[in-house]
Amino acid sequence: MSTLTVDKAGPTRKVKYGSMSRDRAWALRWSYFFLILFAIFSLVPPLYMLITSLKSSAEISAATNPWWVFHPTLSNYIELLTSNQFLRFFWNSAMVAIIVVTITMLISVPAAFALARMKFWGSATLATGVFLTYLIPDSLLFIPLFKMLVMVGDWTGIQLINRWYVLLFIYPTLTVPFCTWIMIGYFASIPKELDEAAIIDGASWFQTLTRIFIPVALPGIIAATIFAFTVSWAQFLYPLVFTTSTDQLVLPVGIITTLIKGDVFNWGQIMTGALLGAAPPLIIYAFLMDYYIAGLTAGATKG
C-alpha cells in the first residue's frame, strides 16, 4: 500500500519540479545570451582601441589583420605621456572635473536636503523643475550660454571665453540638476523620525544635514559624485565650443583637435589618448563601486 502511494507521488512531483527547472533553465539561457551579446557590444570597442594603441603608424596603415598586433610597441604611450601638450589636457581635465564635482556637491546636497525635507511653499514644484532642467539637451543650451558669456565679458571686461575655467560655470548646469535629483531620492528614503529625533536632540537644520543626513546618505552622495565626475570628464560639446587655444583644452577635445591634422588621423595616438583618458573614471568606479550597493541605513529603524 505504502509503496503504491510513493510510486504515485513520485512521478507527479518529478513533472512539477521538472517544469520549474525547465523554466529556470530557459530563463538562464536567455539571460546568458543577452549578457554575452551585451558584453561583446561594450567590450569589443575598447579591445580594438587597445590593440590599435599598441601598433605603430606603419602597421596601422599596412592594413594587416586589425585584431592582431604583429609588432607590439609602447611608442604611442611614451610619446603621449612625455608630450607637454597631452599632459596639459590631462591637467585641465582634472582641474575642471575636481572643481566641478566640488561645486556640484556644495550646491546639490543642501539643495536636495531643502527640497526633500524643509517643506516650504512650492518645494514640490521646484523639485520637479530641477529635474526638467536636466532634460534640456546641451546642444540646445550652448548657443544662448555662449552669447551670455560673451555679454558678461563685454559688460565686465572679464574674459571667460577660451579659458578652461569657463567650464566651471558651464558644467554645473548639467551636473547640479541631476545630482540634486538623485540626492532628493536618497534623502527622501531616510526615515522622517531620524531628523525629528535630531531636531529634538537640539540639532539645527544645518547640523541635521551635516551630522545625520550626509553620513547616512553617503552611498547616494558618492553615486552623485561619480556621476558629476563622469559628466565633467567626458563632456565634449561645451569645451569644443567654449575653448579653442591648445593650452586651454580639456582631454576629449584636445585629443581630436591636436591628433587629427587636416585629413591625417594619427590613429595610434588617438586610441592611446582615449584609453588613457578613460582610465581615471574606471579607477574611480572600481574603488567606489561598493558604495553603490552598501546599505548604510540598515539598523536606523525597524529593519
Binding site: 523620525e193 529625533a197 535630531a198 529634538i200 537640539g202 536606523a300 529603524t301
Partner: peptide
C-alpha cells in the same frame, strides 16, 4: 525627549554616540 516607534537611532553612530548626541550638540 522623545522615543519613536521605529527607534530612529542614528545608524552611523555607536550606541554611546547615539545617546550622547544631544549632549554633544
Amino acid at each position: 525627549a522623545m522615543v519613536f516607534q521605529n527607534y530612529a537611532l542614528y545608524p552611523h553612530m555607536t550606541v554611546a554616540e547615539n545617546m550622547s548626541f544631544g549632549l554633544r550638540l
